[in-house]
């Protein structure tokens, strides 16, 4: 007997993730362009008397904007794209049902060029089994009160709750 199946990443989640990535990419693009234009304007406006101030301003603007773009690209856009790819893989590929109540372990795994995952234990009547779940969804999964999970290549794709 199966209960209600809840997708770990719903269609709405995927759409929200896509929109978030797009917004950040556009934002970073606009910031880069604005910083570059600001620095060019500063260079164009510089005269003998103001050159040192303008140079310092350009260095500060360029450095701060660059840091924001680097941070956003690495930790928001790239991480978001990886999570999206992971989520799409979970939605598309064949699943395996495993019974047991998910419990988080302390083990984190950074998968190369993919997400950071948390290892979970599936505790039930039988032997304890393990699976992995995206770190961003791990706590939600634990709190959901699932009685079984559906995995793709060992990663939780959906879970079952009593209907």
């Amino acid at each position: 007997m199966t209960g209600k199946i809840v997708e770990l990443y719903s269609d709405a989640d995927l759409a929200r993730l896509e929109r978030r990535i797009w917004r950040w990419r556009m934002g970073l693009l606009v910031l880069s362009a604005a910083a570059l234009i600001a620095c060019i304007v500063l260079a164009a406006m510089a005269s003998t008397g103001t050159a040192k101030q303008m140079e310092l301003s350009a260095i500060v603007v360029s450095t701060l904007a660059g840091w924001i773009v680097i941070y956003g690209s690495m930790f928001i856009v790239t991480a978001g794209r990886r999570e999206l790819a992971h989520a799409q893989m979970l939605r598309e590929e064949e699943r395996t049902r495993q019974e047991g109540k998910p419990a988080l372990t302390g083990q984190r795994v950074r998968i190369k060029k993919s997400i950071v995952a948390r290892r979970i234990e599936l505790r039930g009547a039988g032997p304890v089994r393990t699976a992995m779940v995206s770190e961003n969804r791990a706590k939600a999964l634990e709190k959901a009160g699932a009685t079984a999970v559906y995995t793709v290549h060992g990663y939780v794709a959906a879970y079952e709750v009593a209907s």
Partner: peptide, 25 residues
């Protein structure tokens, strides 16, 4: 975790804009 990247960017930014301002002025 990416401190080296941030520092490298600051250095590149300093060198590039110093050169550009020297050239422009």
């Amino acid at each position: 975790s990416q401190l080296h990247t941030f520092l490298l960017w600051a250095l590149v930014s300093f060198l590039v804009w110093s050169w550009i301002f020297t050239f422009v002025n």
